[in-house]
Amino acid sequence: MTWYPLIIRSFSKRSIQKILSINGSSTVDEIHKELGKIMWDYCGMSRTAQGLSDAREKIQAVKQQFWNDVKVLGTNDELNMSLEKAGRVADFIELGALMIEDALHRNESCGGHFREEYQTEEGEALRDDEHFAYVGAWEYQGEGNQEVQNKEQLQFENVKLSQRSYK
């Protein structure tokens, strides 16, 4: 077992070196801004099936861009705020993709999730309690594979589900 620590060093270095070695032309902030724009435009205050499907493609392009063209200077062995941020943005991109999947599958409007296809005549969120009164819990399936959704059905024994009204 004594030889393990030696391996740690080289492997961990290599994985962080990956980000450091790409040396492309896009800064971390630029990529983050692109991700943010996609998320805000398609997965923000209101969402549509079409928009979300488009966003699905666009986000893959951002992911490609990150892993092929990101530019992070410096080394791992120092205070390196660009490197910190790069790791975070890499995760945001993957999470963004999952948010889009989740928004796309939830064919109803509820709370902060407003799908334009599902609204009352007055423009209020229209829930679909029959089909969507559950928690969508996503399960990672390995790099590049579609995540699997598990459902936890919500039980309402004390409150009566009703159309929210603040009128």
């Binding site: 032309s25 800064t27 902030d29 530019k71 200077l73 410096g74 205070l79 705020m81 660009s82």
Partner: peptide, 17 residues
């Protein structure tokens, strides 16, 4: 300062921490 750092990175200079 963010903007300065964007310029620095593009010019292969370490950003200001």
């Amino acid at each position: 300062l963010d903007e300065l750092n964007e310029h620095l990175i593009k010019n292969n200079e370490d950003p200001v921490h």
